[in-house]
Design a protein around this nucleic acid. Sequence first.
RNA 1: GGGCGAGUAGCUCAAUCGGAUAGAGCACCGGCCUUCUAAGCCGGGGGUUGUGGGUUCGAUUCCCGCCUCGCCUACCA
Length: 680
Amino acid sequence: MYLRQQRQLAEAIRGALRSLYGIEVETVVLEQPPELKFGEFATPVAFELARKLRKAPKKIAEEIVGALGSSAPVAGFAGFEVAGAGYINARLDRSGFAQAFARSGEAEAPAERFHSLVEHTSINPNKAAHVGHLRNAILGDTFVRLLRAAGQRVDVQNYIDNTGVQVADVVVGLVHLEGLNLAGVEELMSELAEDGERIDYYCWDLYARVSSWYEASPEEAAARKKLRLNTLHATEAGGNETAQIAELVSTAVLRRHLETMVRLGIEYDLLPRESEILHLHFWDLAFEQLKAKGVLYFETEGKNKGCWVMKRPGSRGRTGGRPSGDSASSGTTENSDSEGPDEDAKVIVRSNGTVTYVGKDIAYHLWKFGLLGRDFAYRPFFDYRDHRCWISAETGEAEHPQFGGAQAIYNVIDSRQSDPQANVIEALRGLGYTEQASHYTHFSYEMVALTPRCALELGYEVSEEDRARPYIEVSGRKGFGVKADDLIDKLIAATHAEVDSRHPELSDEEGEATARSIAVGALRYFMLRYTRNSVIAFDFKDALSFEGETGPYLQYAVVRTRSIFRKAGTTPEEALAGLSGVDVAQYLSGEGSDGIWEVWLRGAKTTLLLDQCISTAEPAYLAKHAFQLAQDFSNFYRLHHILSEEDPARKKLLLATAAVTQRELIRSLAWLGISAPEVM
RNA sequence: GGGCGAGUAGCUCAAUCGGAUAGAGCACCGGCCUUCUAAGCCGGGGGUUGUGGGUUCGAUUCCCGCCUCGCCUACCA
């Protein structure tokens, strides 16, 4: 709605410029004036043209306004005026806008559905999920919801590095610290299950123990590292007891991760595993392509001698200059030597013939775009309420959904991995897949760290140096962090206590559901309110806050609207339909209208925000929008008492205002993965 | 050394393509439950946007220098 008016206005201004001056403008800058009394839209276009036309901005603005007013009036607008030194302000026909927006339902789905693939979560299956993983999963899941809201077909994938060094570390712990074989591990797992203990929590501690064990004895260190490497290789190779232990434990931990995420409404379609990428030899196919296209070349000199390497993005590669800093004359002339090895190149295949992580990732991403020429096999793994999550396999079921072959991909991976991600993109581009490379988004975000106070609260030792920092990075290796399930438990306990004291009339079941909804709302909003490249310094005090700019504040606004409709004996749908044919113009501006129009205008922007969030891959904008809408509603709620309104036409408008608030808030919250309870 | 990100109110963060008076929340102070839910609302104090230049009618935003902080940059995976 808002978007449509905005486009119409931009087009009208372009037309005016064309007829007045014969000028063609690419884009007309449209913004919202600082105050509503200036109108709904403003453009500084006259300033930009002042020099070109050699006229005062104000004069230009007056001419444009004249042209806009004199010709056929722009549909949906009530007027234009010049303000300040040359701004052009535009006023909407508020009544017409509100009527149309009240009627507008869901946008129809596009005929041809764009196919995207979002990868998120991707926790090493060797320990419990922690708050950092929650940020990843919540960001990813929210973005999936946004894409789907925009009509896209989206596959959700959670990549599982089940044969990596982290899993190997836990296997080392089980075998060499605990002295267990496969049967022993099976026994341990059933004992844990009987005692109600979580395998991911057990591994959390074991992983930290193993990590310190490697370093504990200087004389043993080399031997222990060797043990680790052997375990890793056995795990990668498969077909041995070590690999079976790794498979058993990592699958159990993975299952726990999925259970943790279900608590937050996060689900997946496919779990592609590294073991299959290895055993189905994805790399071999990728290697052929990379060699054939010259993306990889065999280095014969320098420190990377004997490796297959790739130039880094942005560098000029092997024909670039020699490493800088060793020549006083550099800068005077272009380097002409093109024979030296590119020491900065990225090693993809080591001199011993093994492929690096980036190499495997290139193969995997060729598969994602349907460019590899080989597919996984698939088995069912986890059943959600209304769909099934599949896992990759070497041999699988004949019937399975189609995975991979997407048109665009989004990888929710923290910012520390921007370098390897850039390498994968560079490889795709080098292979000539420029279209795919341009639809490859590293959905990068900063880590979640703990405040020193939080670390102390949890009983960790904190050095003097760390105490002075604003935040301390979490570390699975050290067992330093806040476990996801612990946090969720804590949140639910806190919301449950509040719900019980506020609403003792609720049944246990209702109380429990309400507490869960609020806890999830608080947690998801907390993770989404920060823009992606901001480090979150985690603190229980902030995360357990339910006041101010928090999820519960948004839910509360919805709950208030529900209460209004309950008491009014009507529904939001009826209220919106009831607006039809009622002349509400006088109530949307002038005396006594404060706070009403703001709600309508904000509410109408929801779709605009959806577009913005997708094009910038930034869910925080929608979180902020929903918060502002809730604030606008609070203001409206204070100024206008709906149930006691005596003017019937005005009452219809007030009810419809509450109804659009509810409709747009619930819509926005759903995209954020947050539900609104009936009462709270 | 090179690359990326960041530095905005006491604290945590916003600020869309360069636009009108840089906004929220928390904390603090003072008010509001006999009217639709106080997880709420109203009011108040709080700013040389790290720093020095430049471009521009206009700079938190763009360019250059400098300072501070974080991350990445290994034939480990």
